[in-house]
């Protein structure tokens, strides 16, 4: 397994380099270093001298990929791309263009994101699986039909509606929880309840249908018939045998998202005033802060690769037929 993991990590290097090139190309197609300087220096009274000074200080006075003024290998190393990429591969995110330490910002913002994402993920996983099993338990009855109609309806509604509906009902009309905000520790519970509830409910429609389809595939397998023939109750058949065998496809979709949980949710965090990572990248794109954009894209890619490797490892753990 060690060799497999090492191989996958080595595969990741060119993938990350490719992603980095695309990020550079896309960002600098839309924004020139002059534009970035203007965005950082403000709209008023910006002079060419100020722009030149800002670019020199932040290294944006270097060419992007190829430095004609240099010789030999320095054609490539004395460039913005080389400077920034080397730092990234050392996980040195450096400073944002506004001058703040990016690693420090990520450390500050990841906890609020996790405070929402982890409970949402766990509760949603548990509740969606249980409700999908109930739907399978009552398959071909009115209960299942009602549940399927409800899930389609839930899928059809935008996440924004859930947020506003929950804020209006639970926070504005019934005054159960604050409408938005965040606090650390035990104080934070009341701020987290509503976004978690919205996160769970808004994903419920798709989640239940997906897990139900997985379980329905299993329900016609021969081992299920054998279990029933042994005289096991339907509940035991479903919750012990079908659930266990259905875990493998569930793992495919679930493990891969675990590392990316801390990247947060843009809309949820924005509406509930959660100071997480959800809006960090979007705000940086708006502010033309390349330092943050490249760091967050790189980090997101690394996390996704880690998720994929973790999925493969989990296969090997849960399915004895799989060898890495």
């Amino acid at each position: 397994m060690g060799a497999y993991i090492l191989r996958r990590i080595l595969y990741a290097v060119p993938i990350l380099a490719g992603i980095n090139i695309i990020t550079f190309l896309l960002f600098f197609t839309v924004n020139s270093p002059d534009d970035m300087a203007r965005a950082q220096l403000g709209g008023k009274r910006v002079t060419p001298q100020m722009i030149a000074a800002w670019k020199a200080e932040h290294g944006y006075d270097k060419p992007l990929f190829y430095n004609e003024k240099e010789k030999g290998v320095r054609h490539l190393t004395e460039t913005l791309f080389f400077d920034e990429s080397v730092k990234l591969f050392r996980f040195d995110f450096g400073k944002s263009d506004a001058g703040r330490d990016i690693a420090h910002e990520i450390r500050e913002r990841m906890w609020p994101s996790l405070a929402i994402a982890v409970p949402t993920f766990l509760i949603a996983l548990a509740s969606n699986i249980v409700l999908a099993l109930i739907a399978v338990l009552f398959r071909q009855t009115r209960v299942e039909k009602a549940m399927m109609i409800a899930t389609v309806a839930m899928m059809s509604v935008s996440a924004l509606f859930y947020i506003i509906f929950a804020q209006v009902i639970f926070a504005k009309m019934w005054h159960w929880v604050p409408i938005s905000g965040y606090a650390e520790g035990a104080q934070g519970f009341k701020f987290v309840v509503l976004p978690v509830l919205v996160g769970v409910v808004s994903g419920m429609g798709a989640g239940i249908r997906w897990y139900r389809s997985i379980f329905l595939e299993q329900i016609n397998q021969e081992y299920v018939r054998t279990a029933r023939a042994k005289g096991l109750s339907e509940r035991t058949v479903l919750f012990r045998h079908v659930l266990q065998n259905g875990m493998l496809p569930i793992l495919t979709g679930v493990v891969v998202v675990i590392p990316t949980l801390f990247m947060g949710s843009l809309i949820l965090e924005s509406f509930f005033g959660i100071p997480g990572l959800g809006s960090y990248t979007i705000d940086a794109i708006r502010a033309q802060d390349f330092g943050i954009v490249k760091a967050m894209v790189f980090l997101g890619s690394v996390l996704y690769i880690v998720g994929l490797i973790a999925t493969d490892i989990s296969y090997a753990i849960f399915d004895p037929r799989v060898r890495l």
């Binding site: 804020q167 926070a171 504005k172 409408i179 938005s180 905000g181 924005s270 005033g273 100071p275 809006s279």
Partner: peptide
Amino acid sequence: FSMEKENIPLWNKFLQGY
């Protein structure tokens, strides 16, 4: 000073006296 990115929560918190 509290961060409030969206207008709807901001307005409702004002009406609630927060």
